[in-house]
Design a binder for these strands. Structure first.
Lengths: 339, 339
DNA sequence: CCGTTGGTTGGAAACGTTTCCAATTCCTGT
DNA sequence: ACAGGAATTGGAAACGTTTCCAACCAACGG
């Protein structure tokens, strides 16, 4: 069934029918009413391919989730989809784990279909420096800072990861901790781990401590098992740690387990701070002190930025949203002994 | 840039170019080679809208996730997308929470775009009985049993939820528990909660216990906060419970917190069994005894079923995959006193 | 040398829309 | 009653493919 069938049956021309479909002006109420009635009667649905072909509008917005298993991204995805759906934009999601070639292939594949827009959640973007500069499709990075990466053509939404990590580690330092280990982040997770690490380093330095990467830092993927194994290794070689800062809640969750499995208690023996404020840290035993970044808000802003670019062609922007340290039960104060 | 540009530049006709693009026979090697070269040189990408328009093939596979926040679904989504991507099928995801009208609107919306296929994760399908019978688009239900729901036209993949729940509660009973509370499941979560509840009921009955729905059961959404609140209420009114069976791991995670917040210990005072085997139960403190259903396998089978219907028009099937009770640390045996 | 066969090839038609332009109708003020 | 403008309308062209059919060519057997 065709737009022509509707035209014929309603007694109007295809042009008029098309105008009705697209809610355009210059259609008499009588015509609109009649056409709508016929469409309803025949159960007509416009063919989206023909439509998109003509309008040279494109396939849906492509979303890349780089880091399967990072619950934080799952929390962002729902609100993102909802916000975009409100404006009638679909998303096509591609889940990727770190492997660079796989990521590149996936991006090429999606680019080839000329998506209207693109959204990147997490991931290591550095190695796409070359190709990313040429992206003209409206795109937004969530959870990574496009301007810092040097992509002037891409928008982005993040919290200030450096400041947030600094406040997390600062919290530990204020509570008297001096031997602080750090877990999480690696090449595949890219900038985000790096920034948080840098923030941690700064906080330590402000207290006159130089981070020993070999001993007190252990990288890992943002998944539970990564956090578990990394923390086990860390504790193995640096048994005197009194606190651990996990670069993500998923990691923290694994870390908590690892600490307990060594027969230590949180926060009794080791204090723990996470990052993201996912359900993990809210409901685990003990509840984990963490940095809240509001997934819904991040998603909402990302959607607005993308929509802006889509609709008005507004240019690339970097946007910061607030974070907050939320104190829970996983940090214990240490009395500092006089030296 | 056009297929015509390629034709012109290569010196062949558009028909031949099209045949090359689609890997069809009846093209000389010389022609194929030349055309491929020109395509590469010009960086040509066929327009998928024009293509689909002509081929009357359709938009991507639509996936509905009914129950935002149920981590089990997040675990399925990645592998599902990967399996489909291997066969060059895209998915567009819609996240929904329970509200029936919202769900109906979303399904209508997607149906109108004539997706190639549809996949439903979870959700309450009962109220779609009327409309679901008319679905001709190849579709598969993951986590719900189409045949039991009476949808002969839809495929589905599940574990045997009844048997699994029975073995979970059976496990508790064997360990000497007699006062067992149940949390999770509600109208919006549909069949899945019902089936598990039924399994639990059976196990109890086999031990001569009749489930008191008013006292020992508390429904809730499959999210952490739901589990927390439901369990709090349950414990409030039935303080003598020695074990809790949560109908999903997310719920179990909230339940664990609720139990601890009442000053009770798991498994010291109250034993806990979950369902799904997500990362929650694997890494929480204590680790939670649960029913493993293999998300990757579920996803893989769902993809195959859908692909089968897409490619060979194979008809709707219901498939069962294995489950397994995995014993961890959240259940303690009770010595039964002689009565 | 010619009719036949089978593999190549070109090009027109069709897919179902939107958009533009010209034509028509309807008002309005005089 | 009529000119002039605005609102409405119809229809052709275009979007970028695939597909079908007719045409071509080379090889081959008689």
């Amino acid at each position: 069934m065709d737009i022509r069938d509707i035209a014929a049956k309603s007694g109007y021309g295809v042009g008029t029918v098309s105008r009705v479909i697209n809610d355009q002006p210059n259609v008499s109420d009588r015509a609109r009413e009649r056409i709508l009635a016929v469409m309803a009667e025949l159960g007509y649905e416009p063919n989206s391919n023909a439509r998109y072909l003509k309008m040279r509008s494109q396939t849906p917005v492509a979303v890349f989730v780089m880091g399967v298993g990072n619950r934080m991204f799952d929390d962002i995805l729902g609100p993102l989809q909802a916000a975009l759906a409100r404006e009638d934009e679909q998303i096509v999601v591609t889940y990727l784990n770190g492997d660079i070639d796989e990521v590149r292939a996936a991006i090429d594949y999606q680019q080839a279909r000329h998506p209207k827009g693109m959204v990147f959640l997490g991931g290591e973007l550095e190695s796409f420096r070359a190709s990313f500069h040429e992206i003209e499709t409206p795109s937004v990075l969530v959870t990574a800072d496009a301007s810092q990466l040097g992509f002037a053509n891409l928008s982005s939404v993040t919290i200030d990861n450096v400041a947030a990590a600094r406040s997390a580690v600062g919290h530990l330092l204020e509570r008297g901790h001096r031997r602080i280990g750090i877990v999480g982040g690696n090449r595949a997770s890219g900038q985000i781990g790096e920034l948080r690490l840098r923030g941690a380093e700064q906080a330590l330095r402000e207290h006159g401590i130089e981070l020993d990467y070999e001993r007190d830092f252990e990288p890992c993927d943002f998944i539970e098992v990564g956090g578990y194994e990394a923390t086990s290794r860390l504790l193995e070689r640096a048994g005197d740690l009194t606190a651990v800062f996990a670069l993500g809640d998923v990691v923290a969750f694994g870390a908590l387990r690892a600490i307990v499995d060594r027969g230590l208690s949180v926060p009794g023996d080791v204090s723990l701070v996470g990052f993201d404020d996912t359900a993990f840290s809210q409901y685990s035993v003990p509840r984990i002190t963490t940095i809240r970044q509001d997934a819904a808000r991040l998603a909402e802003r990302a959607a607005q930025l993308l929509l802006g670019a889509l609709r008005d062609g507004s240019s690339a922007t970097h946007e910061l949203v607030d974070f907050e340290l939320v104190e829970r039960e996983s940090v214990r104060s240490r009395v500092l002994l006089a030296k």
